[in-house]
Design a protein around this nucleic acid. Structure first.
Lengths: 217, 217
DNA sequence: GTCTATACTTCGATAGAC
DNA sequence: GTCTATCGAAGTATAGAC
């Protein structure tokens, strides 16, 4: 009944290197972890690492490959999920709930937690940059929009909804845009980013306005 | 009529170090740039750097301080902006347009471009992590949601809007949540993140549903 | 304020004995 | 497959002459 993956004793050295590296990377980030440290934690010399992985980068590759497979092999895909739902249901709410649940399940299983942590740390590994980002791109604009929506409500320009929720609803979109175009695709050129971003923001404004505007009777 | 900041010839060494460091950091990222390289580019020895800045970190501090000031000193704040608008305007559209314009202006001035690039590179400096992030957290879910909304439209469950736009509108919120709780606040504990995320997602689903659901006449 | 010179550290990676 | 031993490269930072 023994399983290679679960039985600590029967783990190969390669697997132990993998596990230790994942732990350390997800705690300190890739660059902050040395091959020496990994070897020390595993209980071997650093030169022995190179009998199992070509270099440090190859360990990261293996980790990412593993989780890629895990994400897709897990089969918690939306297509599968929606098939479970009765096709004659008319209420779209069930789809959103189902989708939300699956998304959260996917990113929050204990198995996945370390890779997200690794992603997170690799992403905002510099404390100062992170603080800058948090304040200038998230907190300050959100507060400004909250105040703005509060004022709009006071002046009866829009429906009397929760201004904090409105701010999040509205501003999550520019955040998404920022990531999509300016970070995840920062190799592309600047002008086409601006054009597309403006188009998308126009669509967003239109959609959002319809949802919050006071009806003119 | 000469200005310290704009006249290349009269720049102090400290300013030249600042400029060169900003260029290099925004091209390669903080860790990938050595003090040697900065000194070389400025045209002095690395030891001379330490006459102007306590250490490498202090250069980054100066850069971030400068842009923090620039962002707030620039006075492109929403409060100021909205005051320009006629107060008796009833259409909220003008506010969104104004806000959007200012947000985009703020993040896209030539002056700001380097710092955003620096933030970007520091943020997704690891190519493999970036690709993982892009695919698993952005592209794949967006495609799934687009298909889902298309299906909902086909089945007349929701209004016949553009499913791509719907997917973006809907999914930008989870992305925002992911950043707010799992990355920008990854020091906080996991359970409270889940609770808050679920609450916020519930609010989001409610808001979003109201906007897209077919009216039952 | 800039230079030379250098201390000191840490890192990734390799050669070769066992 | 693991070890000892070591290399070469790159990094931050300092001391002291000019």
């Amino acid at each position: 009944m023994k399983n290679k993956k679960t039985d600590e004793k029967s783990k190969t050295t390669k697997e132990r290197i993998f596990d230790v590296a994942l732990d350390l990377f997800s705690e300190k980030g890739f660059n902050a972890v040395s091959v020496r440290k990994i070897a020390q934690e595993v209980g071997i010399r650093e030169s022995s690492i190179y009998n199992h992985y070509k270099n440090k980068e190859a360990i990261l590759d293996a980790i990412i490959d593993y989780f890629m497979l895990e994400l897709h092999g897990g089969e918690i895909s939306e297509e599968k999920g929606t098939q479970v739902i009765e096709p004659d249901l008319e209420d779209p709410e069930i789809y959103l709930q189902q989708g939300t649940r699956m998304y959260l399940e996917q990113i929050t299983t204990p198995k996945m937690e370390k890779i997200w942590r690794l992603v997170s740390i690799e992403t905002f590994h510099n404390e100062k940059i992170r603080e800058f980002f948090k304040k200038e791109l998230l907190e300050t604009p959100l507060k400004i929009w909250e105040d703005t929506f509060q004022m709009m409500i006071d002046q009866k320009m829009i429906k009397p909804l929760n201004p904090k929720i409105l701010a999040q609803e509205y501003f999550s979109f520019p955040i998404y845009l920022f990531f999509e175009y300016y970070i995840l695709r920062y190799d592309e050129d600047f002008d086409s980013f601006m054009d597309l971003a403006l188009d998308k923001m126009t669509d967003h404004n239109e959609f959002f306005l319809k949802a919050i505007k006071n009806e003119k009777k």
